[in-house]
Structure formats: structure tokens, C-alpha cells
């Protein structure tokens, strides 16, 4: 019985990356992986991956070495906190942006 002229604008969308926008722009601190310390990178074994496991946004890859998708990483610092060998450093975005410019 619904009238199609009503509720023409609703928040319904197809799931996919970026449905909530490029959340990487929210980031203040950028996690950077030091491949000289990172366990899978150093040992060339599919091991550890705490960063991948704990990332609440699923932007860390389970690869050798792990990579971070900066388009969506919000910089929450959980990966750096969970890394058992302190291989992830949080660097201020402002410093990096200046350098990148």
C-alpha cells in the first residue's frame, strides 16, 4: 500500500569501501611500519599480524610486509599499541604533509 512518492530520500546504500567517505582524512597521526623490526617482514614468515588482527577498520593487509590503506586508516593507534616489537611509529600528519608538499 506504500505510496512511491513518499520516502524518496532514504539512507540506503550498497555496501562497499568508502560508503562512509574517505575516513583517512580524519587522521591526525599516521602509523608507519618499520620493516626492519616488523616480525613477518624480518622473518619472511606468515607470523604475528597483530596489526592486521586488531585493526578496527580492516585497513591492514595480512601480507609480507603488512601494508596500511591510508585512504581509510583513521590513525587510531591500536596497531602501534599491539605490535609486540614496537615496529609501528605514529607520526604527525602535519609533518608528513609538509614534507610531501
Amino acid at each position: 500500500m506504500s505510496d512511491a512518492t513518499f520516502a524518496c530520500k532514504k539512507s540506503h546504500s550498497e555496501p562497499g569501501p568508502g560508503d562512509a567517505g574517505k575516513t583517512g582524512s580524519w587522521r591526525v597521526l599516521r602509523p608507519i611500519i618499520n620493516v626492519n623490526l616488523c616480525i613477518p617482514a624480518k622473518t619472511n614468515k606468515m607470523a604475528c599480524f597483530n596489526c592486521w588482527l586488531y585493526c578496527p577498520d580492516g585497513v591492514v593487509t595480512r601480507t609480507i610486509p603488512p601494508t596500511i590503506n591510508y585512504e581509510y586508516c583513521k590513525g587510531c593507534e591500536i596497531c602501534a599499541e599491539e605490535c609486540p616489537v614496537a615496529a609501528i611509529q605514529m607520526v604527525e600528519e602535519t609533518k608528513l604533509i609538509k614534507k610531501e608538499k
Binding site: 539512507s11 540506503h12 546504500s13 550498497e14 555496501p15 562497499g16 568508502g18 560508503d19 567517505g21
Partner: peptide, 20 residues
């Protein structure tokens, strides 16, 4: 489907690039 997920202050494209 995503129902009523977070919206940002402005409109933005959906995953297919159409403005939602």
C-alpha cells in the same frame, strides 16, 4: 545493504560514484 549508516555534513558519492 547499508541502512542509515553514518552521513557526513555534505552529500557524497556512493560506492558506484553516484551522489547519495
Amino acid at each position: 545493504a547499508n541502512l542509515n549508516t553514518v552521513t557526513l555534513p555534505d552529500i557524497r558519492p556512493d560506492v558506484r560514484g553516484n551522489l547519495a
